[in-house]
Design a protein around this nucleic acid. Sequence first.
DNA 1: TGAAAAACCTAGTAAAATACTTGGTTTTTA
DNA 2: TAAAAACCAAGTATTTTACTAGGTTTTTCA
Lengths: 159, 159
Amino acid sequence: MRLTTKGRYAVTAMIDLAMNQSLGPVSLKSISVNQGISLSYLEQLFAKMKRKNLVVGARGPGGGYVLARDVDSISIADIILAVDEPLDITECEGEENCHDGKRCLTHDLWSELTDQLHVFLRGIRLGELMRRSGIDQARNSGPAVRLARSDGHRVGLPE
Amino acid sequence: MRLTTKGRYAVTAMIDLAMNQSLGPVSLKSISVNQGISLSYLEQLFAKMKRKNLVVGARGPGGGYVLARDVDSISIADIILAVDEPLDITECEGEENCHDGKRCLTHDLWSELTDQLHVFLRGIRLGELMRRSGIDQARNSGPAVRLARSDGHRVGLPE
DNA sequence: TGAAAAACCTAGTAAAATACTTGGTTTTTA
DNA sequence: TAAAAACCAAGTATTTTACTAGGTTTTTCA
């Protein structure tokens, strides 16, 4: 499991989304402005998260993304694994350096370690991080920052 | 905190070192051969770990590295932080995008998350990983693989 | 009906990090 | 004194990151 700023971007964006989806879909534009992340980069990250069924997209004006599942059923591990695909299948899969059993040994140890990390990150849910921040602060910023529909009309989601 | 294959290399090398230092310093050459990591790359990783007082070097023939501390006092976090310097001081340190308090909010959440990760990885010690592998298997491979001194003479360490 | 807002898509690309390579020097041992 | 090792500096190919550019498709609303 990799853990880089890419995953950090994704987690940050998802926290933003979780905190603001109550009034309807959240546009990537607004997340881009609020979090200072390039719009197109966000599009790429959300395309991956959509493929992993973490978010649902809604096209057209007033559209955006909403979480596909409950905030408490989405873990940090889900998010990071969605954007940082492993591709760690390389190394030592029937390779020549494994002859003495030594290489596979430490590789097993390492994978055990990452398994523990998975369990740990799977234990932290989006809802937890959201609640830890106290009350939703974003909506108070007004439409200029949040880019929310000023009439507060709730836009229907695709079923 | 970053967590990439670089840290994985370092942890793997340190497990190798921990399992083989009982007979004296372990050369990077032997770790290079056993773990399939470039010698010069190992040199760079160990230079960083030496700077963080995780290992002690011994020059000359029969030299190599030994752990500077007990296997149970060196955590996985120590190793990863030694080779993957953070340099995460960027982003949002009195920047312009913080005006509405929103950006700093998610940044705080993220740093809380990495704090938890630190605690977790600090809780896993090198000795634990070592013992989990059962009995030391490496020394049975003989000098061709391990490159150990065949006479078994224990080389003195610098004090 | 048509303009606009959004997702959605593809391709490229600059900067950074990773994972080396090369070619040394210094120290220590036998 | 030769060899083995740490130690050091500089360069480099590859990969990843983070982004730009330029679209299309879908949907809403005036």
